[in-house]
Nucleic acid binder design. Structure first.
Lengths: 351, 351
DNA sequence: CTGTTAGCGCGTTCAC
DNA sequence: GTGAACGCGCTAACAG
């Protein structure tokens, strides 16, 4: 019922092998023959059988992209950029590659499950994005999974994730970005800063927090553990954490959030508490997602070149761009100072 | 080198067929045998070969999801919801299904290309999301492609897209939502409303615009074509269109945007023009994406149940939920009145 | 409940 | 430059 390569061959009066060569284009074929084959393909409305092709060639045109949450623009932007670079020449049958997006929801188990599923599909490459869970058992499990994938010929790239020996890595300088951000706040005169951290045991959370604390330490500001609250990377967490921080220390003059989404929640909580931004409390985010500039006042944050990093990850995954020296490249964030941060009201007296 | 099903069979002292049955779980196997097989699988670290399995069974565990732009939360939210429902029991080898997300960028050619690629992969199902391009040649081309996919056993679902005879459809009531939104503005006393429409020749654009115009007509307000500007669904377009509208008619008191993202751009343009929202100009969006509530003032918009619709589309695609009567279900939007809309300043006099 | 036997549709050696 | 033959790894009948 379904038309196969053999049918095309029969109609074009050539052997199946020749049809295969024409379709994959990586073999010399006489122009006239090629045209005849192509016409037959067209007339028969033939579509290559991907699984059969993958089986015979022992490799597929699938590229896995692991994300924590595809509904979050942070991942959506990277996924989009990666996907835009995986097509083009080089693959089987036209070089079109398909992106398999896997939503792990930040769950270690699902991450492993998806990696196995991708291994099963004989994925040509896999890109893991975003922060990783720090549990050592999981790190080891992922590492061994990555080794197996690599052994099977799957190219591995980490994007916005800490380096792993098994893969080429484009990591974000979360620590440095956070450091500069808090430094900026301190320079404005802030001394009591609340910090809304991400979920515990995530590398992103830890690195950003470390950068924040390092900046505090460098300025001789004692780190008050009561001024750090952990929570998920969402708006509600930012809202709740802000109320909590305000309650713990009504005198704080600035709130640094783990990311922009959380910062938006913080802004809402502040407004609902009758506090003005930045007059009463400064707020800062991280990532510089598209909506950050539309917050009122516009959000001071650290811009991560998500699209650029994703695009590069995609090219590296396809072998179209050389891996960075040592297999690791660090991508820096850029401090974006906007209206949500200003000197605290007491700065005149205090400074 | 790579371990195959035969290796597992040998180690478990059973036939390859039995191993297959255990792995796919859709066939009676003695508990003791199953356990032996499972142990062998574990010891050998065996991973099923997806392509081989798909070839033999003539169906794969891949589900295609076509989106215009995965970096846009509108699509990210739907994709996430769809994906959350495609796993679970029913498929081969544990029922885990993989989501192949295809970014068409709104291009008809890429849409067709991706459909062909999905056909090549023998996708178990394909969900097309968001508005469609209205060019008749393209509509026909997509229709014929969908027929072929359906003929090959691929389940087809349209989510947030106008009905097509070839697929089960969950469509959004864009027209009705837009109608209610503009009605709300008119009730507040607005008479000069600017409309920032989406790209031309897209169903979403047309339906929302039609709803808007119908509301104007119902209120006896003449439709001034100069008060409608088309543009892409992004922030910059909203910004530029607003400046243009302001220039064309400085007396307008409200701006209705094609979606929330565009509305955000409109707000920025208004602020930069020294106009207050909603005192000088009211602004309304569409979709109610997560950030809409964080705009200042919070955005009046029409909430589309993206996650619910996506989840339902996923279930329908998997045959886990019965198709709606007639194969078509219309999902209504809900008007969310918030701070960005209010009576125009002249309302006291005018009304 | 389990083993045997055929393909699934294509890529890839080899020869010619 | 082209054809013939084999096998990729698995599932699906069919027996038993």
């Amino acid at each position: 019922m379904t038309v196969t390569l053999a049918d095309v061959a029969a109609r074009a009066q050539v052997s199946p092998a020749t049809v295969s060569r024409v379709l994959n284009g990586n073999y010399p074929v006489a122009a006239s023959t090629r045209e005849r084959v192509l016409r037959a393909v067209d007339e028969l409305d033939y579509v290559l059988n991907g699984p059969a092709s993958a089986l015979a060639a022992a490799t597929s045109d699938l590229v896995g992209i692991l994300v924590n949450d595809i509904a979050d623009p942070f991942f959506g932007i990277m996924a989009s950029a990666i996907q835009s670079e995986i097509g083009g020449p080089g693959g089987r049958a036209g070089g079109e590659r398909l992106a398999v997006v896997c939503n792990t929801g930040g769950s270690p188990e699902r991450e492993l499950t998806y990696l196995t599923l991708l291994q099963r599909q004989r994925a040509a490459a896999v890109v893991l994005t975003g922060g990783a869970v720090e549990d050592s058992a999981h790190v080891e499990a992922v590492g061994s999974k990555l080794c197996k994938l690599a052994a099977a010929g799957t190219r591995l790239v980490l994007c916005g994730r800490p380096p792993a020996p098994e893969a080429i890595t484009l990591t974000f300088d979360n620590r440095g970005g956070a450091h500069r951000l808090t430094e900026h706040l301190i320079a404005l005169g802030h001394r009591r800063l609340g910090y809304i951290a991400g979920p515990v045991e995530r590398t992103t959370t830890r690195h950003r927090l470390e950068g924040h604390r390092a900046a505090l330490a460098a300025a001789g500001i004692a780190d008050d553990p009561r001024l750090t609250v952990h929570g998920p990377y969402d708006r509600r967490a930012g809202y709740a954490a802000t109320l909590e921080l305000l309650c713990r220390d009504p005198s704080l003059t600035a709130i640094v959030a783990a990311n922009d989404t959380v910062a938006l929640g913080a802004c809402a909580a502040l407004r609902d508490s009758g506090l003005r931004i930045p007059e009463d409390v400064s707020v800062a985010g991280f990532d510089d997602l598209p909506f950050a500039i539309d917050a009122v006042p516009a959000l001071t944050t650290v811009r991560l070149p998500l699209a650029e990093a994703g695009a590069r990850a995609g090219r590296v995954a396809m072998g179209r761009e050389e891996a960075p020296p040592g297999g690791i490249a660090t991508v820096r964030g850029k401090l974006m100072v906007r209206g949500s941060t200003a000197a605290p009201r007491s700065a005149g007296r205090a400074g």
